[in-house]
Design a protein around this nucleic acid. Structure first.
Length: 353
DNA sequence: CTCCTGCGAA
DNA sequence: TTCGCTGGAG
């Protein structure tokens, strides 16, 4: 009956449990471990060796859960603070006339009744910058999805591409679409018949691939039963599909059907229009403003022939120049019109070169 | 508002 | 290590 023995046992138990939960206290490199484990699983799945696959899969599951807990505990709501309308205090640049526009009378959101000054110069300047820059959206945007396909397949490709593209880098989306194409999984019939797990593997690593895979199955089934394998042709019906929100619905209407029902407002368009360029309206910086409200405000004054081109224009501009983090105001030729130019980059002293 | 996913840039 | 990615749903 020795005390040291008990101590040793206790230590042993500790070590074992730490191994099981992947060493809770000194958990250092979750992502690298997770990535390599994931790659291992992928390669073993390719070589068809189901022996160690389940064990690795379990480990990855545990790892993922743990990483998620760890991350959400530390970095909670640090996500959408990009806005920070300090512009309100900075400089009221030429306040446009504001009045209740007659619709949305209950809403306190002010509407522009006057076309913003200089919007044509701003757009022209952006267009010039975009002609020399090469943004990801130009080569891999979902507008380009399946351009060589028959109309019906092309529309379906646009829909799937839009679905996959949310919160995912363009080249990742593009790769997933290519993989689906190679496996002939870009029609409603094929996806409806295909296994959901197989779809999931093909579209990995797009964001939220589990949910998107199940959404794709549901969408394929709906398209088959109600639209004869084609995609819905109205905004309302598109919005009924799972995983399709206002942004995607407008995009699909514009690109898939060539039927302009509204402006496709995504985060880039929202940010650039509302907080930086074009609208320049301090009152419009209300926190209640959403992309949908931005869309309505834009549609009030922007000529309709600009509704479609403004999306790729501003998206590419937002990807290359007017980025959410560290916007490159130095190379922006329209920074003179921008109320927030050189404001968000707190590093003016670092470049004495 | 919160969650869902992994990954690359800085 | 942190943050954003052409978002959507509960």
């Amino acid at each position: 009956m020795s005390f040291p023995l008990f101590k040793n046992i206790s230590a042993l138990v500790n070590v074992t449990s730490q191994k099981i939960i992947f060493s809770s206290s000194s958990f250092k490199m979750p992502k690298t471990k997770l990535s390599s484990a994931k790659r291992e699983i992928n390669s073993s799945a390719d070589s068809k060796s189901p022996g160690s696959e389940s064990a690795n899969g379990e480990s990855v599951q545990k790892l993922r859960v743990f990483v998620r807990k760890k991350r959400t505990k530390k970095t909670v709501q640090t996500t959408v603070e990009e806005v920070k309308p300090e512009i309100l205090d900075q400089k009221p640049c030429s306040l446009p006339e504001i009045e209740d526009f007659g619709y949305g009378k209950d809403s306190s959101f002010p509407r522009l009744t006057k076309t913003p000054d200089n919007w044509e110069k701003v757009l022209e300047g952006i267009r010039k910058m975009r002609s020399s820059e090469d943004a990801p959206v130009d080569s891999m945007g979902c507008e380009k999805a399946g351009t060589s396909l028959p109309p019906k397949e092309r529309r379906f490709a646009v829909l799937v591409s839009s679905l996959l593209s949310s919160q995912t880098k363009d080249h990742v989306t593009h790769g997933a679409i290519q993989r689906l194409l190679q496996n002939n999984l870009l029609t409603a019939e094929a996806i409806d018949k295909a296994d959901e797990g197989e779809i999931k593997e093909l579209i990995y690593p797009v964001g939220f691939y589990t949910r998107k895979a199940s959404n794709m199955k549901k969408i394929a089934k709906i398209c088959l039963s109600k639209y004869d394998g084609d995609i819905p042709s109205t905004l309302e019906e598109l919005l009924q599909l799972p995983g399709i929100g206002p942004k995607m619905a407008h995009l699909v209407m514009n690109v898939g059907w060539n039927n302009v029902q509204g402006i496709c407002v995504d985060t880039h368009v929202h940010r650039i229009c509302l907080y930086r360029l074009l609208i320049n309206d301090p009152l419009a910086l209300s926190r209640t403003s959403t992309p949908e409200e931005t869309r309505e405000a834009l549609q009030l004054w922007l000529p309709k022939e600009e509704w479609v081109p403004i999306n790729p224009l501003l998206v590419g501009f937002g990807q290359t120049v007017c980025t959410p983090l560290r916007p490159r105001c130095g190379i922006c030729t329209v920074s003179g019109f921008c109320p927030s130019a050189f404001k968000e980059s707190p590093s003016p002293s670092s470049k004495t070169k």
